[in-house]
Simulated assay, not measured.
Amino acid sequence: MTASPTLSRVDLGALTAAVAETAERYDRSGAFPTDGLAAVHRAGVFQAVLGERFGGDQVDALERLRILQAIGRGDPSVALIVANTVATHVAQIDRDVWPAHLYEKVVAETAERPVSINTARAEPELGAPARGGLPATTVRRTADGWAVTGRKAYVTASTGLDYHLVWAKTDDPEPRVGHLIVRGDAPGITIIPTWDHLGLRASSTHDVVYDGVEAPEDHFLEIPFTGVYRDPAAQASALGLTHAALYVGVARAAQDFFTRFAHDRVPAGLGRPIATTDRIQTVAGEIEAQLVQAETLLYGVTEKAVAGDPEAVARVPLAKVLIVRSAIAAVEAAVAALGNPALSRTNPLERHLRDVFSARVHPPQEDQALLTAGRRVLGV
């Protein structure tokens, strides 16, 4: 496959380093990672992922994964916010999902600053929409368009979102379902600070309450009914393996620390760096093996799926499961080998361990992926 023309424009190593500078500070404070997103914007990432017809570079799927892996290697909270935003830009390339005038405004804003976009999907009662069901959140018609009311859970980037895509049903006798695009500063939006998780602490994944938040008529993006309402944004995210990529970045960051520590640690009884011992070298090999496996699946399956290989498309959910397992195993191997220093908050490895565990929550979740694969194999 031909290399993306923007590989020379987005310096992935410099991008990782710039984002990593503030990762620990935001992890400790739990604040919205403004500086990390600014670094991503300065690196030209948003220009790189915009479609050519909107003045962007329109990098291919593999390069998008490389970029997200590089950001995840620096700060996965920032990478998750960027990944969700990128999903909107990618969808707009092939078809005009957003109204043209509104998307033109987003593109103009993005040229000036890191504009964040995300779909508000999960609800306290419904759970993950990828498993099906109708949202309780409701949109009703007004004289000028729509008004949305409801509560969403796990809205990543909530405190810094510029645009919310609120998954909701209409109040018609036979409800229609879709996303209502609302500005993050619109009246009636309240952020409920519920995010106090083990990992991705700076992702600002709080609950959001919408109380009659208004938007124009053309801001409602309907989802056609196909027998069961499943959120296509969640499906698209899974098919792109974008979230898996950022956690491979986390595992690479853990490997970076393990390597530095192994060279710097010189026990008095040994008299030389532990990197020279067979045990540490074997662990280093195990970590690399897990990461080679993860990256081979990530990029290999994506390349074949994008090329239209139906077998590769069908294997994407299993690939996500296996990539996540490898990323977690790589970090755990580093932690187990280094002992107490690995779990000290003075070192970044304990943060990488906390962050990589979040990989499991993104769709498709492991049980669903295995169930689907099993039924396919058994023909039932």
Rank of each mutant, 00 (worst) to 15 (best):
L7T: 13
L7F: 09
S8Y: 11
L12G: 10
L12V: 04
L15R: 02
T16S: 08
S29D: 05
A31D: 13
P33H: 07
G36D: 03
G36N: 08
A38K: 10
A39T: 07
G44C: 07
R53G: 10
F54C: 07
G56W: 00
G56K: 04
D57K: 05
R64W: 01
R64A: 11
G72M: 06
P76Y: 00
A79E: 11
T85P: 05
D94A: 10
V106I: 15
I117P: 01
A120N: 11
R121M: 08
P124S: 08
L126R: 10
A128F: 09
A130L: 08
G133V: 06
L134G: 02
A136S: 12
T138D: 04
V139A: 12
V139C: 05
V139L: 10
R140C: 08
R140P: 02
A143R: 14
G145Y: 05
K152D: 02
L165G: 08
P173F: 03
L180V: 15
G184H: 07
D185W: 09
A186V: 09
T190C: 08
T194S: 07
W195H: 12
D196S: 14
A202W: 05
A202P: 01
S204N: 15
S204Q: 07
S204G: 14
D211R: 14
V213D: 01
P216L: 04
L221G: 01
E222T: 08
E222G: 04
I223H: 09
F225C: 00
T226Q: 05
Y229P: 00
D231W: 03
Q235G: 11
S237V: 04
L239H: 15
G249S: 10
G249H: 00
V250R: 00
Q255F: 08
F258K: 06
V266L: 07
T277E: 10
T277V: 05
T277L: 04
R279F: 14
Q281P: 07
I287G: 00
A294L: 07
T296C: 13
L297H: 04
L298F: 03
G300A: 06
V306H: 03
P310G: 07
K320D: 11
I323W: 03
R325G: 07
S326P: 09
A333C: 12
A334I: 03
A336K: 13
N340H: 10
N340S: 12
P341M: 09
A342S: 15
N347K: 06
E350T: 14
R351C: 00
H352K: 12
R354E: 14
P363V: 11
P363F: 03
E366W: 05
L371Q: 14
A373H: 13
G374W: 06
